[in-house]
Amino acid sequence: MRVPVPAGTAVVLQTSGSTTGTGHLVALTGDALVASARATEQRLAGPGRWLLAVPAHHVAGLQVLVRSVVAGTEPIVVDTAAGFDPHRLAAAAARTDTATPGYLSLVPTQLVRVLAAGEEAVAPLRHLAAILVGGAAASPHVLAQARDAGLAVRTTYGMTETGGGCVYDGVPLPGVRLRIGDGERVEISGPTLALGYLDDPDSGAFAEEAGVRWLRTQDRGELLTDEHADVRLRVLGRADEAITTGGVTVSPTAVERVVVEHPGVAEVAVVGVADAEWGELVTAVVVPSAARADLTLTQLRALVTGRLGAAHAPRALVLVRELPLRGPGKVDRRGVARVAAKALEDPASHDGGADRGGGGRGVERHATGAS
C-alpha cells in the first residue's frame, strides 16, 4: 500500500495493534520527537546516558536514540537478538558512570524478569537515575518490589501518537495537556503529537479545537488531585476492551488491578471468552509467581468479589508461563484470548506451566450456574 507522507515527517512508525491485531501507521516530525526528549530531560535529572533494551523500531526504543542525540551521549545497546537477558542488561548498566545520569526504558515483563534474576541482575541498576517502565500497565507489587530493591522506577503513559511516554507517574510532561472527554476518553495535546495516521487520515482521532490539536485516545481515564493539589492521570482501561458477562459490563483493567494484589500473581491479563451461559466468561490468564502453589481460582474470585462484586470476579483461571506480547512488551489481548479459549475448550491440552510446579493444574473453571 502506497500512501502520501505529510510534509515534515521524520519517521513513520506502526502502532502495536494489541487489541485489533493490526496497527496504524503514524507520521511523526523531528520537532515532536525532540520536544518529547527535552521534556523528558526536564522531568528527570537532565541530559544523561541511556541504555537501549527495547526495540528501536518502536517508539520507546526510538526515543532512547533521540534522547541520546539531544543529550550528546552515546547509548549503550543491550543485545536482545536472542531474547531479553537480565544479566546482559546488568553488564551493560555496569558500563555507565555515576558522573552522568544513567537512564533505562523497560516494559513491565522485563522488570519482572530482572527482579526474578536476583541480586546480580539488580545491583548494577541501582545507580541509574531513572528506570522508565511503560508500554503496558505494571503491577503495583512489582513496582513496590523494584523500589524496595533500590531501583528508581518511574511509570510512564503514552503511545506512538504522542511520541512516546508523555505522562510520568501520572503527571504530564512540560507542555503536555490532558483532559477527559466523552465516554471518559483521555485526550492529549502538546508539541509531541504526531501528524496523524497515514493509513486512516480521517479516523477522527486527531482534531483541532480553538487552534489546539488534540488526540482522542482509546483509553478511559480520570484526573485526580493528590495531597499536593497536583492533578494526576489514572488510566482505567481501554474503551474497546469491555467484557459483557451475564448482562454486566466488566472492565478488564479494573479486575487486573485487583488480581495482581495476590502474591501468587506475577502478571495477569483478563479477557472474555465466548460462553453459552454468560455470553462472555471473565477469564484471568496468569503468569504465576514463585508462590504458585497458593494460587487458586477460588482465592482470586474472593479477592475480586470483595472489591468489585461477584459479577466482576473471574469465572476461569488459566496459568501460563508467559503472556503473548505484541510490539515492545505490550500484552497481545487477542493472543491472550486465543490461549484462554483453547485452554478452556480442551484443558487436557494445556500444560499450565507444568515446568513451574503446576502438577497439571493449569486451568480452573467456576461451577456452571454458581454465583
Rank of each mutant, 00 (worst) to 15 (best):
G352E: 11
G353I: 10
A123V: 05
G181Y: 10
L193M: 13
G306P: 04
P140S: 13
P172F: 09
A239W: 06
T96E: 03
G17H: 09
R257P: 04
E280A: 14
L51E: 00
G190W: 05
V255G: 03
G8N: 11
G362A: 11
V258Y: 03
R361M: 12
T305D: 05
P75I: 00
T22N: 13
V171C: 11
V12H: 01
I243G: 01
V231S: 15
L28C: 10
G211K: 01
L106K: 01
V286L: 08
L52E: 06
A81I: 06
R185I: 10
V255Q: 00
S16R: 04
T298A: 15
E364N: 09
G272V: 08
G175T: 02
A92P: 00
V285H: 05
V78K: 00
G163N: 07
V285I: 10
E187R: 13
G118W: 03
L33E: 06
P86I: 03
A276R: 14
A129K: 11
G360H: 10
S289E: 11
L132Q: 10
T155N: 11
A91L: 03
H58W: 04
L317K: 08
D275C: 12
A207I: 10
V78T: 02
D240F: 08
R67V: 01
P252H: 05
A311Q: 08
L319N: 09
V285M: 07
P86M: 02
L89D: 03
E74N: 04
P252D: 01
L198W: 09
H87D: 08
V5Y: 07
G134N: 01
A35Q: 05
V248L: 03
V336S: 04
V5M: 10
T192Y: 03
R2G: 08
V258P: 02
T96A: 02
A254K: 01
R177P: 08
V153N: 08
R326W: 06
Q63W: 00
E277I: 14
